[in-house]
Amino acid sequence: MRSAAARTVRAIPTLLRIGLAETVAYRAEFIVWILTTTMPLIMLGLWTTVADEGPFQAYRSEDFVAYYLAMLIVRNLTGSWVAWQVSEEIRLGTMSMRLLRPLHPMVAFATSHLAAIPFRGLIAIPVAVALLVSSGASALTHDPAQLALLIPSIALGWIIGFACLFALGCLAFLVTQTSAIGNIYFTLFGILSGYLLPLDLLPSWISRVAACTPFPSMLGTPVRLLVHPMARGDALELLAIQGAWAVGAIALALTAWRVGLRRYEAVGA
C-alpha cells in the first residue's frame, strides 16, 4: 500500500510536466476555453445598469463591479472540464489505457489540470488589475489576514469542484446520455454557487437550500472573502465548511469511480 502511494508521489512531477506540455500544445484551444467564462461580464453589464438607477438591495454599482470581477478571477482559477474528459474517455473506451497504469486516474486528471494553473493565472492577472483600478476597488476587503485566507479557500474550491465534476463524469459508466444531467448540474451550479448572482440577493429559501449544497464552497466563499470584510471567526468557519465539503466531495468521487468501474464495458476494446 505504501509503495503505491510512493509510486504516485514519484510520478507527479512527470505528470505535471506532461500537463504543462499539453496546455502549451493546445494553447489556442485553452485560451478559447478560458474566454468561454464570459457570464460574469454579462451579468456585470446588466447589474451596473440596474444599480445606476439606484442601489439594488444593499448592492451599489461598485459592489457589483467588485463582485463580478472577483468572480471572474476565482472562476478562472478553479474551473475545470474534467466531467467531459472522463465521460468522453468512458464512452470511447480510451479509459482502458488509463486503467493499465499503476496510478489512480483521478490523480492523473488532477495533475494535468493543476499544470494549467500558471496559464490560468496569466489570464487572471489582467482581470485583477482591472479590478484594482475600477470603481470596484473601494468595495474590496483590505484586511491582509482575510486576504491570506483566500489562497487556501481557492484551493479548496478547486478541489470541491474538481471532485464533483469527476463524479459527474463517472455517470457515463451507468448511462449513455450524460449531457442532459450535465445541463442540470451546471444550471444548479450557476444559481447556487453565486456564479450568476450574489447569494444574498437570492430569495431566502434558495439561499437556505444553497447552504446545504457544496456549490457555495466552490465559488461563493472565495469571492466573499475577497469582497466582504468579516470577523476572523466567520472567515475561519467558512473555510472549515469548505474543508468538510472537500473531504466529502473526494469521497464521493472515489465511490462513484469504484461503483462505475464495475460496470465498465471498455467500448471499442
Binding site: L46, Q177, A180, I181, N183, F186, L196, L197, L202
Partner: peptide, 21 residues
C-alpha cells in the same frame, strides 16, 4: 423525453435572475 424535460427544467431555473430583478 428525459432530455427534453431536463432542458425545460434548466431553462426554467435560468429565469431566476430576471424574476429577482
Amino acid at each position: 423525453i428525459f432530455n427534453g424535460v431536463m432542458t425545460l427544467v434548466s431553462m426554467a431555473l435560468a429565469l431566476l435572475p430576471l424574476l429577482i430583478l
